[in-house]
């Protein structure tokens, strides 16, 4: 149940307006030009950061003005932010994994350089993938 006590019917009062929307459009087009121009310089790995930062500013402008979040009930903005937040969690933990693989080897790891290489028959990359429904005596499915 809405907690608002004011009684305006839909359309009684509106924020925003053509002037603000048009100004916002020009700001967005300007930022597009800036991001294309910035991409032609080489800032190293900062390029991606700059591009995403400009994109985020543009997204915020679209959200605040075109989608009326600036004047809307805060719950809608919270929902949108939550969406990006959980996407961020997904991205962060995935990168935590892929960027740290092989960084931490056990202390008693044997020196693999002098080890005898495994025969090709044991190397999955050098043998064709088994046909899935080949009759195998004990079909072992090992996943959780």
């Amino acid at each position: 149940m809405s907690t608002e006590t004011h009684t305006h019917v839909q359309g009684a009062k509106h924020h925003g307006g053509p002037l603000i929307y048009t100004a916002n459009l020009f700001a967005l087009m300007f930022l597009t030009v800036v991001t294309v121009a910035a991409a032609s310089f080489n800032f190293g790995s900062a390029n991606v950061v700059i591009a995403l930062a400009i994109a985020s500013v543009k997204a915020i402008l679209v959200g605040l003005f075109f989608m009326h979040l600036l004047w809307d009930k805060p719950v809608n903005a919270i929902i949108l932010i939550a969406g990006f937040l959980f996407l961020g969690i997904f991205l962060m933990f995935d990168f935590l994994d892929v960027t740290s693989r092989n960084n931490y080897l056990p202390r008693n790891m044997p020196n693999m350089e002098n080890a005898t290489p495994a025969p090709d028959s044991m190397n999955p990359l050098k043998t064709p993938a088994p046909r899935p429904l080949d009759p195998a005596p004990a079909k072992a499915e090992e996943h959780k």
Partner: peptide, 21 residues
């Protein structure tokens, strides 16, 4: 709102695909 979110997604698609270096 739907149309703006389609725009917003493109705002992120554009630099990632066309501007990475």
């Amino acid at each position: 709102l739907y149309w703006h979110i389609v725009d917003m997604i493109w705002i992120y698609l554009f630099p990632l695909y066309y501007l990475i270096s």
